[in-house]
């Protein structure tokens, strides 16, 4: 067996150079390194393999309550850009980048469209929205009859589906969220501006000399 003087970071199969990731995103090098501290916590919670699997992602989102959730699954699938069933560090940083306060609205709109277009047809269909509404009701105390669900869908589609073909295309979505900006609140995480103070231990593990930018 060979003996390698590798650091903990290089043992992570998806580890990417923070300088490179910072150049591709709204994050500074220090912020990418702070995100690595978060990534290590999540990716080591069940299997310490340097990758986040779906179970680890859900544990992190729901604070150690093991629960299956349609929406968390959907976010996971969008983070898992290589469709391997796991999220590596590069995937994690690039996906969180979309949620950075400094990222243009068009990118956030595009991500949210994909979030709701669950089967990837290029349209948000009424049946998908109904499925999501039912899933939401399943996770909350809210009880709504099928009639009320259909009324909510009628109202939503009369507002969003401009050509009334029963599905929302990208242009219709863009126009709808521009008129309803509160829908995009979930696409911005103010936390991403404070990650170096939330995870200060990155300083001890930094491989970059010049941390102060």
């Amino acid at each position: 067996m060979g003996c390698f003087a590798s650091t903990a970071k290089r043992q992570h199969p998806g580890y990417e150079d923070p300088v490179r990731l910072a150049s591709q995103t709204a994050f500074s090098v220090s912020e990418v390194e702070a995100l690595f501290e978060l990534f290590k916590n999540i990716s080591g919670s069940v299997i310490d393999d340097g990758l986040i699997n779906k179970e680890e992602f859900q544990l992190a989102l729901f604070k150690n309550q093991r629960k299956e959730n349609l929406f968390a699954n959907r976010i996971f699938d969008l983070f898992d850009v290589k469709k391997r069933g796991v999220i590596d560090f590069g995937d994690f940083v690039r996906a969180l980048n979309v949620f950075h306060p400094n990222i243009p609205m068009e990118e956030k709109n595009d991500f949210s469209f994909k979030l709701y277009d669950m089967d990837g047809t290029g349209f948000i269909e009424r049946k998908e929205v109904k499925q999501m509404l039912i899933a939401l009701l399943g996770e909350s105390e809210m009880r709504l009859s099928d009639e009320i669900i259909e009324t909510i869908l009628d109202k939503t589609f009369s507002d969003a589906d401009a050509n009334q073909d029963g599905k929302i295309d990208r242009a219709e979505w863009e126009s709808f969220v521009t008129r309803n900006p509160s829908l995009m609140k979930i696409m911005t995480l103010p936390y991403l501006k404070d990650i170096t103070t939330t995870f200060p231990s990155f300083v001890f593990n930094s491989e970059v000399d010049d941390l102060v930018t």
């Binding site: 978060l38 976010i75 509404l133 939401l136």
Partner: peptide
Amino acid sequence: RPESMNAFALISRSQGFNLGNLFEK
């Protein structure tokens, strides 16, 4: 509330979309 008739406003309240939880220790 008008939001209650907007399916996406309701759906976006799911905990599964609350990525802020990842940052809370």
